[in-house]
Design a protein around this nucleic acid. Structure first.
Lengths: 215, 215
DNA sequence: ATGTGTGAATCGGTTCACAGCC
DNA sequence: GGCTGTGAACCGATTCACACAT
């Protein structure tokens, strides 16, 4: 479920506030969902709540970190050192959360060897070596759209089966691999769509999911 | 619908390839969905297809651009000039697609006035002026999580009712505003979850939606 | 009393399948 | 013959509502 990480973040906040126990109602409020969903989601992890009381924050936190695989670091390689790739490499938010960026990779020979922060760019042909040496488990695709599928294939061939794709392209991977995508332009286009709707007469249904009404 | 921009991108590619007409089947393949979904989605825009033939690429492109509000530019302001904010500001991909970044905003007085590319940072208290002068229609939140809700409130108060939130926080906006979120750490956590599942014994259902099997 | 865990009802979105039009 | 447009069937996810544990 894509909501577990959200719960996790809320629980961390609560733990910092010395809260020892939390109800599904309260957690739902923090996570921006409803209480029944929280209970159903958490019940998949096992019966970690106490009826009449709620969930023990620390214990739930531990169980969830374990289930999410966050008790260890997952080294990340960024493929494509253009604007976006550099931006992501400089953004410190990954390493903080257990996803250290351990390699920058590009196909352009003129970029290979250039330094960005503590890392120097390596050639994509070395991907199998890089993956093995640095134990890379996640690959981030930050190339132009046309290269994205090829890069994905190379990542999988190198044994990197978790892929986050920032390129505006539909790519496919074999079933043993996982693929998520983040498409920045697409998000903006969706916003401009709704803005457009608000300006002219409404024709299509309202947004859903990511825009809860203020409570 | 969040799929319209994907169709749009596929249609642009086809138009560049001088393809004049396209079937729902072919478009579905390019967009990574199935044909029935394409037809249902496009039928919401109106009956723009021709039975027995398919859709006229140019005409559909025009209708979709209009519906998505992409016949005009939508100026963007980025709030929060930390690592992520700078990264997004330097990333050229927004302006190219009709979303020029026209303002950088921060609450830290020591950052105000510093230049990044062609823009210099302005103070968040000036947001109402900035919004009016530069016709900002979309605000990007790239602040730490704790500031996100406050920034959202200020954006809405300044008349910027389309918001893209990169901060790892659940925020809410009044119903007249639209909110989308991009949570990079969350995407990585979802990947690490599935990677973890593959390593240990599977307990939860497989991914869905973003990971089509290779055809 | 309070709040979880969970079957049952509900809902929205996806897929099927076919009538209708080129 | 081929492909769209769309009602109907389907399916997973959300929500309800309540028995049960503390």
């Amino acid at each position: 479920m894509a909501r577990l990480p959200v719960y996790l973040r809320c629980l961390v906040e609560q733990a910092n506030d010395k809260t020892t126990t939390i109800s599904s109602e309260r957690l739902a409020e923090l996570a921006g969902v409803n209480a029944a969903k929280v209970r159903k989601d958490l019940s998949y992890l096992g019966s970690y709540g106490t009826r009449g009381v709620g969930y023990d924050v620390e214990y739930l936190l531990f169980q969830m970190s374990r289930e999410l695989g966050l008790t260890q670091d997952w080294p990340v390689a960024i493929v494509g050192v253009g604007n976006l790739g550099q931006a992501l490499a400089n953004y410190g938010g990954f390493g903080d959360r257990g996803f250290p960026v351990v390699a920058l990779v590009d196909a352009d020979p003129s970029k290979v060897g250039t330094a960005h922060g503590k890392l120097s760019v390596r050639h994509i042909d070395d991907l199998p070596d890089i993956a093995r040496e640095l134990h890379v488990s996640i690959g981030i695709i930050a190339t132009p759209a046309v290269a994205a599928q090829d890069v994905a294939d190379r990542l999988v061939a190198a044994g990197i089966t978790s892929i986050l794709n920032f390129a505006p392209a539909i790519i496919s991977v074999p079933p043993e691999a996982s693929l998520r995508k983040v498409d920045l332009a697409l998000e903006l286009q969706i916003l401009s769509f709704y803005q457009q709707q608000r300006a002219g007469g409404p024709h299509l249904p309202e947004p859903s999911g990511t825009a809860p009404a203020r409570s």
